[in-house]
């Protein structure tokens, strides 16, 4: 619907066909598949064969990447700084866990249910983030995140409280692929979901819809003047992002067969922000790059200082910000356009 609307808008505004052709070319240019994307996916598949002993950490990376990319839709495109994105992740995890425990142990159905539940929560809370300034949004998102953690803690009869949900096992995926002890199936499963999710989000992000989100990000008032319905768009993208965050949570619940209250913890929201900072915002693959780096760094740190890795994570954050995110991502500007994620104005 939005596509059609947008196209109608474009065609109405550009009376001459030349402008329209230019717009179509620009959209095509923005959305074409770049070489680094192919490299990433090849590397991800190659990792399955080359690093058979690292399946668990690879799975972790894939899940974190999906989670981070979903936040990028909100942060990099719509420009909403969220401190509570883990709420959707956690709700998705609990939804998948509860479904597997009480109803059906089919993983794919679990993903859909998790997306549905998290999306519903995202839809309901999106009306709250429409209000106020950046500060109120921080408060709202943080508050919702903490509230969900508290709900999970209080409703012990449903969620197991502080002990978490355990004791569920999952059927083979679609009845075909069984989860094995080494997490090999788990990794491929997560990778497949990440790939599908990524392609859907890519389609959304590089559509006129995604472009209009960037317009809203840079100036909501002007976006309104060129008849972009800012509020509606934000609600939609927030809901979509919540759904994918829920799917990421469901993946974690399914691959580990365990849901701890930790899925809703504040540090998870902060971690995912940091992932995006490392990888860069606004071009989706930042979440993937960031997830790889973040997980490796965190893994290395928690080996060195099991208890105090938080300190070093904090230090890295401070240093990253002081250096400046733009400077960190500047290397991409030196690459040819086809290689880098940068968009060039025509």
């Amino acid at each position: 619907m939005t596509m059609v609307q947008q196209e109608a808008l474009v065609s109405r505004q550009s009376s001459d066909a030349a402008a329209e052709g230019r717009a179509v070319r620009l959209m095509k240019r923005r959305s074409r598949i770049r070489i680094y994307e192919i490299v990433i996916w090849l590397a991800a598949v190659a990792a399955y064969f080359l690093l058979p002993s690292k399946m668990l950490i690879l799975t972790e990376i894939a899940i974190l990447a999906l989670f981070a990319v979903s936040l990028d839709l909100v942060l990099g495109f719509a420009g909403i700084v969220s401190l509570g994105h883990a709420a959707f992740f956690g709700v998705g995890a609990y939804a998948a866990g509860l479904l597997a425990l009480h109803y059906t142990a089919e993983p794919v159905i679990g993903l859909f249910v998790a997306a549905l539940v998290a999306g519903l929560l995202g839809f309901l809370t999106s009306f709250l983030i429409l209000r106020g300034s950046d500060l109120t949004r921080l408060m709202t998102t943080l508050g919702i995140g903490l509230m969900m953690a508290e709900v999970a803690n209080q409703m012990a009869w449903l969620t197991g409280g502080a002990d978490g949900l355990s004791g569920f096992s999952l059927n083979p995926i679609l009845g075909l692929f069984e989860f094995d002890l080494y997490g090999k199936t788990g990794y491929l499963y997560c990778l497949a979901v990440l790939f599908v999710g990524m392609m859907i989000m890519r389609r959304i992000a590089f559509s006129p819809f995604g472009l209009s989100l960037k317009a809203i990000k840079s100036n909501p008032m002007r976006a309104g003047m060129i008849s972009v319905p800012a509020r509606k768009r934000v609600v939609v993208v927030y809901t979509i992002a919540a759904m994918f965050a829920g799917i990421a949570g469901a993946l974690l619940a399914q691959t580990t067969s365990f849901v701890s209250p930790d899925v809703l913890a504040f540090h998870r929201s902060a971690d995912v922000l940091m992932v995006l900072t490392i990888g860069g915002t606004g071009y989706l693959y930042g979440g993937v790059f960031g997830a790889v780096l973040f997980t490796l760094v965190k893994d290395a740190l928690s080996v060195v200082t099991p208890q105090y890795w938080m300190f070093w994570i904090g230090l890295i954050l401070v240093v990253l910000v002081l250096i400046g995110r733009e400077r960190l991502n500047r290397w991409a500007a030196y690459l040819p356009e086809r290689l880098s994620g940068k968009e060039r104005e025509q």
Binding site: L75, V81, L83, D134, L138, H267, A270, L273, M274, T277, T281, Q307, Y308, W309, M310, F311, I313, G314, L315, I316, L317, V318, L320, V321, L322, R325
Partner: peptide
């Protein structure tokens, strides 16, 4: 140095400080 940075940077920076303070106090 961060007064002119955007809100995301400020949030990340101060969360980093919080993490350091939490771990430092623990230590």
């Amino acid at each position: 140095w961060l007064y002119r940075a955007d809100h995301l940077d400020q949030v990340l920076f101060s969360i980093g400080l919080v993490f350091m303070a939490v771990a430092g106090a623990d230590y």
